[in-house]
Design a protein around this nucleic acid. Structure first.
Lengths: 145, 145
DNA sequence: ATGAGTGTACTATGACAGTAGTACAGCACA
DNA sequence: TGTGCTGTACTACTGTCATAGTACACTCAT
């Protein structure tokens, strides 16, 4: 298991960990019931404090993504409802995996243009915001009226 | 002008502001020399503290994205080198805008699948990480050997 | 029963984001 | 020459992230 928090991104490490684990669960890379590496192991691998990992695990349990069993370890929740409302499991994971090629294809194009990782992120986030808001128009366009 | 920091994302507001302004400059939505809204105005619109906006502007000036002229206001730097090394300007903005349809197309597909914004973000970030790392294999796949 | 490994629970500390409030300094336009 | 707008610069305070260190409680395999 190898997660990779980016300490310089401004996003708290424990949040990044949570996101990456959720992603692994959502795509089925981590199967339901599967055991996650121990707190100390993860902390050691990533050279971060065990408390930080513990916090991520605790939050994930609170969200129902994983189950913590004292003395036993951390496990992906059986009826992993992930970040969604109800059950999803394999069917949904399949759906998500099906989108991977499209995502990778886009990223490849962006990389071919010489975009930095930051620029890609901004591009994506920017359009995501546009989607979230009313849609049709950009924030800046709105101003120009 | 309407930027939209997401206070619950864990990313510092001033960083989000910076990202969104950079994005606007990169895509040409904000033209070189154009004036940005005042610190107090932005702070009022977003219901955040003027100091937070000031910090974002200050950092952006330090990065050469904008110019601050006391008493006059904030302006997009003429030879906006953005987050890149040298000049880019209109040519590069054109390139970036050219990619927008592809990005929107992907987002539309993801939305059609009923993905939440969070899931989209994780999908993108996950693949971005994969790209950054050695490529071929996923972190979790690596474990399973 | 023992021991290694697991999660849990504290306390303390440092760094920094963000808020709040105030005052000052420069530019532009009527 | 003002008046109102701009950015600049403080100080103080609160909350959170992350680290560090320690101790405890539970589980599982031997």
């Amino acid at each position: 298991m190898l997660f990779k928090p980016n300490p310089s991104s401004g996003v708290p490490i424990y949040l990044q960990l949570m996101e990456q684990i959720k992603h692994a669960v959502e795509t089925g890379a981590l199967a339901a019931g599967e055991q996650l590496p121990g707190i100390r192991k993860v902390a050691e691998d990533l050279v971060i404090n065990p408390n930080t990992v513990a916090k991520a695990y605790r939050e994930l349990e609170h969200e129902g993504v994983i189950e913590l069993r004292q003395g036993a370890g951390a496990f992906v929740a059986e009826r992993a409802r992930g970040a969604r409302g109800q059950q999803q499991n394999e069917a949904r994971a399949e759906q998500l995996r099906g989108m991977l090629p499209a995502v990778r294809n886009l990223l490849a194009k962006l990389e071919a243009l010489g975009l930095t990782e930051e620029e890609m992120r901004r591009l994506f986030e920017g359009e995501l915001t546009r989607l979230r808001e009313g849609a049709g128009e950009t924030a800046v366009q709105r101003k120009k009226r």
